[in-house]
Simulated scan of single mutants.
Amino acid sequence: MDSLPAPFAAPEGARIGEIWFEPPPQLDGLLVKYLFTSEKLSVQVHPSDAQASAGMSGKEECWLVLDAAPGATLAIGFEQEISSEEMRAAALDGSIEHLLQWHPAKAGDFFYLPAGTVHAIGPGLSLLEIQQNCDITYRLFDYGRPRELHLDEAITVSEGRPHPPELRRSLVPGEDAQLVDGPRFRLDRIAGEPSAAILARYRGPVLVVPLDGAVSLEGVRIEAGECGWAADLHIADFSEARTSLVAQPAD
């Protein structure tokens, strides 16, 4: 995008598609990204830990919609069960786009994507993505753009089925929400200061992403649109926070 929602700003004449934060060694299993789309992104899939190359992790990920243009959509999973042979044929002729389930998206919508979930992001969206720190992406279809496809690898790891409805929801403003408590990472949205339950869940190093307001981590002020980390959570760090995310690799 060349026009980003607040608090972001693109340099004049520049287009920004994503912003990511390199994690510290203590939290190198997680990656935080902001994504901004002005066109459809490729139809793609990521492998699981078991399917990834030796020495690499797979990629489970989730999206929190921060801003959405009217009619914006995300494709996650298929409308109905599809075989590997049908998926390959649809990727080759381009019809795979129409076999995917396109979900309307608005600010506050949350989606969790297990590894193997075929997905695509439509235009007009600003997303916060929390993911396993892995750059393995297999593209099935790219709308005719001259980039490499990875059909064999993608078909091998893809789940040809609908996205489970329990893995997506719309968040209630101003409330704490446990978003992910999975085998790879945990993620909570915090309204104001962290509760005793959240403090008990998050022992040790954590990533913190302010969405509204600011936090103070290890003496460093972190504003909305940034990402920071702390050796541990402390209530005092959130005295100026209104809404934040906290994330941590699973034990």
Rank of each mutant, 00 (worst) to 15 (best):
L211D: 00
A177V: 03
R221I: 14
V215K: 04
R168M: 15
A230L: 08
V172K: 04
L211E: 04
E226A: 14
S239E: 15
S170C: 11
L187Y: 03
I235H: 05
H234N: 08
V209P: 04
V215N: 09
G204A: 09
G213V: 02
E240S: 14
A197N: 12
A230D: 09
D212M: 05
V208N: 03
A231I: 06
V220K: 02
S239C: 12
R203I: 13
E218M: 05
P164H: 10
A200W: 00
A191E: 06
A230Q: 10
V208I: 15
A224Y: 04
A214F: 00
H163D: 07
D176V: 11
L233V: 04
V180R: 02
Q178A: 13
H234Y: 05
H234I: 08
G182K: 09
A200L: 03
Q178P: 01
Y202Q: 09
P183E: 13
G182D: 02
E166I: 15
L217E: 10
W229K: 02
T243C: 09
E166V: 15
L199E: 13
D237K: 00
E166C: 11
P210M: 10
I198A: 09
A214L: 12
A196C: 08
S216A: 10
V172E: 13
P164W: 06
V180L: 05
L199G: 11
L171A: 10
R221Y: 00
I222E: 03
P162A: 10
D188A: 05
R201W: 02
I222A: 04
A197G: 05
L207K: 13
G213H: 02
I222G: 01
D176K: 04
Y202H: 08
D181I: 02
I235S: 12
L207R: 13
G182Y: 03
F238N: 10
A231M: 06
G182V: 02
D181M: 07
V180C: 01
R203P: 01
A197Q: 12
R203Q: 14
L171G: 06
S216T: 15
I190H: 06
P173W: 09
P165R: 10
G204R: 14
E218A: 12
P164R: 13
R242W: 01
G204P: 10
V220C: 00
I190D: 04
G219A: 02
R201L: 07
A214N: 05
D188P: 02
I198F: 09
A191F: 01
E223W: 03
R184L: 00
A177M: 03
V209T: 14
D176E: 08
D212Q: 14
L217Y: 03
A177L: 11
R201E: 09
V180P: 01
L171W: 07
V206K: 06
I198Q: 12
C227I: 08
R201C: 08
R189Y: 08
A177H: 05
R242K: 14
L199T: 13
P173G: 10
G192C: 10
P165W: 06
E193V: 13
F185M: 01
G192Q: 09
V172T: 15
R201M: 05
R189L: 15
V209A: 04
A196W: 07
P162G: 03
A230P: 11
L199C: 10
